[in-house]
Amino acid sequence: MNFQNILVSSENGLATIIINRPKKLNALNKETIGELHAAFEALENNKNIKTIILTGSEEKAFVAGADISEFAHFSVAEGGNLARLGQEILFDFIENLSTPVIAAINGFALGGGLELAMSCHFRIASDNAKMGLPEVSLGVIPGYGGTQRLPQLIGKGKAMEIIMTAGMISADEAKEYGLVNHVTNQQELLPLAKKLASRIKRNSSIAISAAIRAINANYKDGVNGFDIEIEEFGECFGTEDFKEGTSAFLEKRKPNFK
C-alpha cells in the first residue's frame, strides 16, 4: 500500500499505521482521512493481521487536530456533511473494526486527533502528550464523535469541563480520568504498544471480535448490550477457537488458535 500521508507496515500479525505529516503536526485533512480509511479497510480484510497500532510521526504530535483551512468557509450544509462523512468513513469505522486498534498517543492529540484516538479500542500515551477538544474556541463543537465518546470514557461532568474550557490535559490527568490506560516515556511508547498487542495476539481473534461487538452494543441507541452478549457468547460455541481453547485448558497446554 502506497500513501502520501501515512506509513503502513506489518510484521508477525501486527500492523502499524503512522500518520506522517510532521510539518503540519500530523493534522487530519480530507486526503489523510481517506488514506486512513483505505489502510484500515485493507488491514481488516487481511486475516493475518491480528492487531493494529495507530500513532503519529516524530515526537511532537499524534494528531494536532483537523486541517482548519479546508473547512473555514463551509456553509451549514457543508459542515454537517463534513462531520457525517468523517464519522462514517473513519471514526465510526475504526470503532467497529473486528481487529483491535491501539492508539499510541506520542504528543499532541487535539480536536480531531483526540477524536481519532478515542475511536480506537483503547489508548496509551507518552508522558509528553497533551490532549483536548478546543473546538469551542473556534466557534464550533467537536464533530467527529468527541461529544459522545469523551463522556462515555470519562463521565459527563469532566467531559463537559474539558470541552467547554477548550483546555488541554496532561497524559497523567488523562490516565487518572480513564482516557488512557498507560503512560510511559516517549522511547518506551511503541514497545509498550507492541507488548500489549502481543498479549492480545495470543488469544482468539474470533472471541476478541465478538467481545468488541458486545462492548460497543452497550453504547448504541435501541440496542440491548446484554442481549448482544448472550448472542455472541452462544456463537462462540460453534467455532474452532472454542474447541481449541477449551481442549487446551483441559489438557493443561497453551492453545494454538488458527
Score class of each variant (00 low, 15 high):
Asn2Ala: 04
Phe3Lys: 10
Asn5Gly: 07
Ile6Cys: 05
Ser9Tyr: 08
Glu11Asp: 15
Glu11Pro: 15
Leu14Ser: 07
Leu14Cys: 07
Ala15Pro: 06
Thr16Glu: 09
Asn20Lys: 03
Asn20Ala: 08
Arg21His: 08
Pro22Arg: 14
Asn26Ser: 10
Asn26Glu: 05
Asn29His: 03
Lys30Thr: 04
Lys30Cys: 03
Thr32Gly: 12
Thr32Ile: 10
Gly34Phe: 07
Glu35Lys: 13
Glu35Leu: 11
Glu35Gly: 14
Glu41Trp: 01
Leu43Trp: 10
Asn45Glu: 05
Thr51Glu: 13
Thr51Lys: 06
Gly56Asp: 05
Ser57Phe: 01
Glu58His: 10
Glu59Asn: 12
Glu59Gly: 00
Ala61Asp: 09
Ala61Gly: 04
Ala64Leu: 05
Gly65Trp: 13
Gly65Gln: 08
Ala66Gln: 08
Ile68Glu: 14
Ile68Asn: 08
Phe71Thr: 14
Phe74Gly: 00
Val76Ala: 14
Glu78Lys: 13
Gly79Asn: 15
Asn81Arg: 14
Asn81Val: 01
Leu82Ala: 06
Leu82Ile: 01
Ala83Asp: 15
Gly86Gln: 04
Leu90Trp: 07
Leu90Met: 07
Phe91Asp: 09
Asp92Val: 08
Phe93Ile: 09
Asn96Tyr: 13
Ser98Tyr: 09
Pro100Trp: 00
Ile102Gln: 06
Ile102Glu: 04
Ala103His: 06
Asn106Gly: 05
Gly112Tyr: 08
Gly112Glu: 07
Gly113Asn: 07
His121Val: 02
Arg123Cys: 12
Ala125Asn: 09
Asn128Leu: 10
Ala129Ser: 15
Lys130Phe: 14
Lys130Cys: 09
Gly132Ala: 01
Leu133Gly: 04
Leu133Pro: 09
Glu135Lys: 06
Val140Tyr: 10
Ile141Asn: 14
Tyr144Gly: 05
Tyr144Ser: 10
Gly145Thr: 15
Gly145Pro: 15
Gly146Val: 03
Gly146Thr: 06
Thr147Arg: 10
Pro151Arg: 04
Pro151Gly: 05
Pro151Glu: 02
Leu153Glu: 06
Gly155Gln: 00
Gly155Arg: 01
Gly157Cys: 04
Gly157Ala: 14
Lys158Leu: 10
Ala159Trp: 12
Glu161Cys: 01
Glu161Ala: 03
Thr165Asp: 04
Ala166Cys: 15
Ile169Val: 11
Ile169Phe: 14
Ser170Arg: 02
Glu173Trp: 15
Gly178Ser: 12
Thr184Tyr: 05
Gln186Cys: 00
Leu189Met: 05
Pro191Asn: 11
Leu192Asp: 02
Ala193Met: 04
Lys194Asp: 03
Lys195Arg: 12
Lys201Cys: 09
Lys201Val: 09
Ser205Tyr: 10
Ile206Tyr: 15
Ala210Tyr: 12
Ile212Ala: 04
Arg213Cys: 11
Ala214Gly: 08
Asn216Trp: 10
Asn216Gly: 09
Tyr219His: 13
Tyr219Met: 06
Lys220Ser: 06
Gly225Ala: 11
Phe226Leu: 13
Glu229Gly: 07
Ile230Gln: 13
Glu232Ser: 03
Glu232Leu: 02
Glu232Pro: 01
Cys236Thr: 15
Gly238Thr: 06
Thr239Val: 05
Glu240Leu: 12
Phe242Asn: 12
Lys243Ile: 05
Gly245Leu: 07
Ser247Ala: 14
Ala248Thr: 10
Ala248Arg: 12
Glu251Trp: 03
Glu251Asp: 15
Lys252Pro: 11
Pro255Ile: 05
Asn256Trp: 00
Phe257Ser: 01
